[in-house]
Lab assay of single mutants.
Amino acid sequence: TYTFKVDNKDQAKKAAKWAKKLGLSFQIEKHGDTFKITVQ
């Protein structure tokens, strides 16, 4: 499981695209202005 934080929606979208490309499941949680992405 890999967790990282991004500062904006664009970065969150890029991370989601990357995870989908690799066939991984992911969750994006919004914490105020940051997004926490968990990829597994």
Rank of each mutant, 00 (worst) to 15 (best):
W18M: 05
F26M: 08
K20S: 09
A16N: 03
K13R: 13
S25W: 11
F4Q: 01
Q40E: 10
G32V: 03
A16E: 10
E29L: 06
F4R: 01
G32A: 05
K36E: 13
F35R: 01
V39I: 15
Q11V: 08
A16V: 13
Y2W: 13
D10Q: 14
F26D: 00
Q40W: 15
Q40N: 12
S25I: 12
T34C: 05
Q40H: 14
L22I: 06
T3Y: 10
K9W: 15
H31A: 12
T1L: 09
F4E: 01
A12M: 08
I28M: 08
I28Y: 04
F4A: 02
T34A: 13
K5L: 15
A12G: 03
K17H: 09
T1E: 11
V6A: 05
V6K: 01
Q27M: 12
K13Q: 10
K14W: 10
A15M: 12
K14I: 08
T38M: 05
A15P: 01
Y2T: 04
I28K: 03
K14Q: 09
D7Q: 13
T34G: 15
A19T: 01
G32R: 05
E29I: 09
S25Y: 10
Q11E: 10
Q27W: 13
A16P: 00
G32Y: 05
K21T: 08
T34D: 07
K17A: 13
L24Q: 02
D7K: 14
I37V: 11
K17I: 12
F4N: 01
A19L: 15
N8R: 06
K5T: 15
A16L: 10
V6N: 01
H31P: 01
T38K: 05
K30M: 08
G32E: 08
Q40C: 08
N8S: 13
A12C: 08
G23C: 04
K9G: 07
G32K: 06
F35T: 02
Y2F: 13
K5E: 15
L22F: 07
T1Y: 13
A15Q: 02
A15H: 04
D33T: 10
W18V: 04
A15C: 12
T1K: 12
H31C: 11
K17L: 12
A19F: 14
F26Q: 00
Q27S: 13
A12P: 01
Y2L: 10
A19P: 01
K9V: 13
I28A: 04
D7L: 09
L22S: 05
Q11D: 11
F4P: 01
Q11F: 06
K36S: 13
V6T: 08
I37S: 00
K30D: 06
E29H: 08
V6Q: 01
D10G: 12
E29T: 12
T1P: 09
V6W: 03
A19D: 00
A16D: 02
G32D: 08
I37E: 00
K30A: 08
Q27T: 14
L24R: 02
I28R: 02
F26C: 12
Q11S: 08
A19G: 03
T34S: 14
A16H: 06
H31K: 08
S25H: 11
K36I: 15
A19I: 11
I28W: 04
V6R: 02
K21Y: 06
Q40P: 03
E29P: 00
A12T: 03
W18Y: 05
F4G: 01
V39T: 02
